[in-house]
């Protein structure tokens, strides 16, 4: 199976220049995100669109987490929504039943997701490919079951209200507020993802993606690295889930559903699994489309299905690498 990276450089260009371009490219990507977040409110002013954008930042954060475990380390995780749901419900359950302040609940949810990912990840990351996919599906399934069944704590299938975050005596509920909060967290999450990519950890992950055997033969502790990716991804998902719960003021068990897991995978693969920007782009596409079709709610599933099928068939490496190749070709003329 041939793999050409979206920005494969013709070897006619001298190595030093190429290196500089590569380095700048990643820096550009890190700066691109805050730039976009700062500028978009100039173009989109309605409360509705700001809310959609805030949702995109949140889903983008979760998607970056999945990109780390799926796109960088190559581990198929179809249960990402499980940790997303854990983070969301931590904010629903802890403040309401245990008087935990919302911010502390976010931290608790994150810690719980990390610990769960660590405990469950150790055995199941020994599996590969479809086996791993099914096992991760199972995790999300079990989490979803607990959330839907333990109605006493979680409000059952109909969901439950979430106590909002406060700043002083201000309740943080306006879309604009959440646009900046989730945007800020996304900037941080994106930067961390790029930092990891450039580090020995990132190289170890990418090596594992291409050949576990070779990676191990070079001294990479494959099992430990996979677990790290899995736990980090869970943390991203949990924080994103918490943000969603606090923004909406309400959660339902859907946040941990198979559908959500599939959407997250689709976001990552659609946008391009090899880069955090791809995850954000995919999140934008799959979050905005249903909103566009909101009045035609019935068509939502059909639309997502078609979008996913056609993009994956004709752009299997994702949108961002395809864009990269297009820019390449334009640049060469």
């Amino acid at each position: 199976m041939k793999r050409d990276i979206g920005a494969s450089i013709v070897s006619a260009v001298p190595a030093a220049e190429v290196q500089r371009w590569w380095r700048n490219r990643e820096l550009l990507a890190v700066l691109f995100v805050p730039a976009v977040i700062l500028l978009l409110p100039l173009a989109f002013t309605s409360n509705y669109s700001i809310r959609v954008l805030a949702l995109i930042w949140i889903m983008g954060l979760a998607a970056i987490g999945l990109h780390i475990v799926l796109g960088l380390a190559g581990q198929v995780s179809l249960g990402h929504a499980g940790f997303f749901g854990l983070g969301a419900y931590a904010c629903a359950v802890l403040p309401k039943h245990f008087d935990v302040p919302p911010l502390a609940a976010v931290l608790a949810g994150t810690a719980a997701s990390a610990v769960l990912a660590w405990i469950v990840g150790r055995p199941i990351l020994r599996l590969k490919g479809h086996h791993l996919a099914v096992a991760t599906l199972g995790i999300a399934l079990v989490i979803g079951l607990v959330l839907a069944n333990e109605a006493r704590w979680t409000g059952g299938p109909d969901g439950t209200a979430v106590i909002r975050l406060r700043f002083g005596d201000q309740v943080l509920a306006k879309p604009m507020v959440w646009y900046w909060i989730s945007g800020g967290v996304l900037v941080f999450g994106n930067a961390v993802a790029f930092a990891l990519r450039r580090s020995p950890t990132g190289r170890a992950w990418r090596a594992i993606l291409d050949s576990e055997t070779a990676a191990a033969s070079l001294g990479v502790d494959v099992a430990r690295r996979k677990l790290q990716a899995f736990v980090i991804a869970a943390v991203y998902a949990s924080v994103a889930g918490s943000a969603l719960a606090l923004m909406n003021g309400f959660v339902t068990p859907d946040v941990a559903s198979l559908m959500t897991s599939i959407e997250l995978v689709a976001m990552v693969v659609l946008g391009g699994s090899s880069t955090p920007i791809g995850a954000i782009a995919g999140a934008a596409l799959l979050t905005a489309s249903p909103q566009i079709f909101a009045s035609f709610h019935m068509f939502q599933e059909i639309a997502i299905g078609l979008v996913v099928m056609f993009s994956m068939t004709y752009l299997p490496r994702g949108l961002i690498p395809a864009l990269g190749r297009l820019l390449e070709r334009i640049g060469r003329r």
């Binding site: 190289r203 170890a204 990418r206 291409d210 050949s211 070779a214 070079l218 001294g219």
Partner: peptide, 21 residues
């Protein structure tokens, strides 16, 4: 390796850098 286990998605220098792990 007999059937070559290089890392195709990484550049040559990145391939060698993994060896520095």
């Amino acid at each position: 390796f007999q059937n070559m286990q290089i890392f195709p998605a990484m550049t040559a220098v990145e391939n060698v850098m993994v060896g520095c792990a």
